[in-house]
Design a binder for these strands. Sequence first.
DNA 1: AATGAATGAGATTTCATTCAT
DNA 2: AATGAATGAAATCTCATTCAT
Lengths: 206, 206, 206, 206
Amino acid sequence: MAGGTKRLPRAVREQQMLDAAVQIFSVNGYHETSMDAIAAEAQISKPMLYLYYGSKEELFGACLDRELSRFVEDVRGKIDFSQSPRELLRNAVLAFLEYIDANRASWMVLYNQATSSQAFAHTVREGRERIIELVGRLLQAGTRNPEPDTDFDMMAVALVGAGEAIAARVSTGDAGVNEAAELMINLFWRGLKGKQSDKDAPVSAR
Amino acid sequence: MAGGTKRLPRAVREQQMLDAAVQIFSVNGYHETSMDAIAAEAQISKPMLYLYYGSKEELFGACLDRELSRFVEDVRGKIDFSQSPRELLRNAVLAFLEYIDANRASWMVLYNQATSSQAFAHTVREGRERIIELVGRLLQAGTRNPEPDTDFDMMAVALVGAGEAIAARVSTGDAGVNEAAELMINLFWRGLKGKQSDKDAPVSAR
Amino acid sequence: MAGGTKRLPRAVREQQMLDAAVQIFSVNGYHETSMDAIAAEAQISKPMLYLYYGSKEELFGACLDRELSRFVEDVRGKIDFSQSPRELLRNAVLAFLEYIDANRASWMVLYNQATSSQAFAHTVREGRERIIELVGRLLQAGTRNPEPDTDFDMMAVALVGAGEAIAARVSTGDAGVNEAAELMINLFWRGLKGKQSDKDAPVSAR
Amino acid sequence: MAGGTKRLPRAVREQQMLDAAVQIFSVNGYHETSMDAIAAEAQISKPMLYLYYGSKEELFGACLDRELSRFVEDVRGKIDFSQSPRELLRNAVLAFLEYIDANRASWMVLYNQATSSQAFAHTVREGRERIIELVGRLLQAGTRNPEPDTDFDMMAVALVGAGEAIAARVSTGDAGVNEAAELMINLFWRGLKGKQSDKDAPVSAR
DNA sequence: AATGAATGAGATTTCATTCAT
DNA sequence: AATGAATGAAATCTCATTCAT
C-alpha cells in the first residue's frame, strides 16, 4: 500500500526478493521463516515469490546459490593462481576472511542454516568436500619432504574445520581479520611440517 | 495393543521417552520431528510427553542435556588430570573420538541439529566456549617458550574447529579413530610451536 | 461454541463427519466443497477431519464407500436369489428404485460427483462394469432362443445406462417408482426378445 | 519466443483459443484446468482469454456451445426429416454414433465434465431434455397401436440414457459404431412394441 | 499415572483475475 | 491488439498443545 506498487522488470524483482529472503532467512533461520515474512520484507505479495521461485525450498536454494556465487567470485577474483603455494594460501585465506568480515550477516548464517536443514546439508557437504580437496592439493604442493604416510586429505579436513571455526569468530566480530589470517596460515604450514626436518626458516625466508 | 497402559516409575519413563526422542530427533532433525512421532516411538501418549517435559523445545533440550552429560562423563572418566599436558591431550582426544565412534548416530546428529536450531544454538555455543577455554589452558600449559603474542584463545578456537570436523568424519565412519587422533594431536602441538625454538623433542621425550 | 463440544467415541464421530460430508458434497459437489464447510457442518474442527480421514479425497472416498455399502446392502437384502430370472429382475429393479427414491439427495448426487471427479471416475467405472456383467448374465439366463449373435454385454451396457437415467428421474421426484420399474422391466425383456415376432416391415413401409 | 506477438483477426483468435481450451479441458477436466494452461496451449497471454471470454466459466461455456453446435449441425446435416420414423431413427443413431466415434477425445469428455460441474449441469440437463422430447415424439410417431397408458416420455428417458451409455462405449473405442447402432435401434423399437405379442406368461410361469 | 479426543493457529501453495504499458 | 507484472482470496493440510476422563 504505502510501499512501491511499481512494475519492475523481472531481473530487478528477482534481486529484490532474494535480498529480502536472504535477510529474513539469515535472521530467523529456514524453518522459522515464513513466506509471508519474506513477502512482507520484499514488499510484494506471496504469489510473486512462488511465481518466481516455485517453493520455499527453491527460494532458499536460490539464496544459497547467489550468496555462494558472490562469495566464490569475490575470493577467486583476489587470488593469483600463478603464485607460489605459500603466497596463494596467504591470499586465499585473506580473501576468504575479508569476505566473511565484510558480509557478516548474510553468509555465515545462511551457511549454518543450510548445514543443518536436511534438504541442503547435502549441498553444503558437497561444497565443503570440494574445498577440502582443494586444500589437500595445496598442502601437497606446498609441503616439502612430507612424511611418507602423511594423510593430506585428513589434514585438509582438519584445516577446513579450523577455518570454518575461525571464520565464525570473524563473522561475529570476535576476531580481527589479520590476526585470524595469520593464525590460520601458521596453523596450516606448521601443522604440516615433516616431523623433525624443520625447514621452515629457509622456506619462510623465501 | 496389549502392551499399553503400564505404570512405570518416573525415572524409567523418562529414559524411555528420551531414548525415543533422541532416536527420532537424530534421524529426522528437530523441525521435521513431530511430537506424535516421538510418542509413537516411545509407545506412550502425547500428553505424557507434555507432562514430563512441557514442550517440544524443552524435550529437545532434555535430550541434548542427557546426551551431553553422558558424553562429558564418559570422556572425563577416561582422563587422568594429573598427567602431563601431552598425556592429557592424548587421552582426551582419544576418549573424545572413541566416544563419537561408539555413539555415531546419536551424538553428532543431535549436536548438528542443535547448532542450527536458533533456540539451541546458544546452548551449543556456550558449551563450545567452555571447551575452547579448556583447550586454551591446555595449550598454555603445554607450550614452552611461547611467542610473546601467541593468541592461545584463537588457537583453541581453530583446534576445536578442526576437532569437530574430524569428529564428524569419524562419526560417519570415514575416518578411523586412531589415525584421526594422531592427526589431531600432531596438529595441536605443531601448530603451536614457538616459531623456531623447537623444543618438542625433549618434551615429547616424556 | 454454541454447538456441542462434547467428547464422542470415535465411531460416533466418524458417522457424524460422514453425514456432514455427504450432505455438503451432495449439495455443492466435490470441488466446490471446502473442508472448512464440512467441518462447520459437522460442528467440529478441521484437524479432526484430517485426523480421521487423512485428506479431502479420502474423505470423499469414505463417503462414497459408506453410501455405496448402504445401497448395496439394502438392495441385496431385498432380493431372493433363488427366484426365477424374471422375478429376480423385478425385485432387483424395485429394490434399486425404491432405494433411490428413499435416499434422493445423497446417493445420486454423490454418484454423479464421483463420475466426473477424475480421481473417482475410475472407481465408479469399475462398479458400473460389475453391474453390467451381472445384468449381462441375468439377460443370458432369462432369454430363451437368443439370436446366435446376441451381444449380451452391449445390451447390458444399454440397459444399465437406461436404468441410470431412469433412476436419475426418480431421484428428482420426476418419476414414480412403480411406473419407472414397470418400464425398466418391460424394456429389459422386450428389448431382448428373439427376432421372430417381427412386425417391423409393415411399419417401416409406412 | 519468435512466434509471439502476431495480430490476428478476432474470429481466428477466438477459434485458436477455443481449440486450446477444448483440448485442455478435455484432458484435465474443468477444475483441474488452469487458465494459465489454456493460455500456454493457445500461445497467447492470459489477459487475452479474459478479454475475449470474460471468465473461466464463460470460456468453458463457449467451448461447450461450440462443440455442441458442431455436434448438432453434423447430426442434423445427415438426417432427412422427410423419412419414415424408422429410417429417421436409423439415420439419427448412425449420425450420432459416427460423430462420437470421429470426435472421441473432445466431445464425450467435455460433456461429462459439464454434467457434473454444478455450473453447467443445468445447461446439460436442458439439452438432454430437448433430446428426450425429440425422441419421445419420434417414438410416438413410430409406434402403432400403442398401449393406452404408454409413457412415451419416460421411455424416451430410458432410451436416451441407453444411448448415452452406448455412446460412452463407442467413445472409448470399446464398441463399434455399426454394432452399437444396430443394438440401439433394436432396443428402441422392440422395447416399445405394444403389449399384444406378449409371450411372457409362459416364461414367467416357469 | 495415563490417554483418547479435540483444536487454534498458521504454513505452504494455487488460482482466477486485473492493472499498466 | 496484446502482454508482463502483480495480487486478493482461499484451499489443503500440519502441528504443538490441551481438556476431560
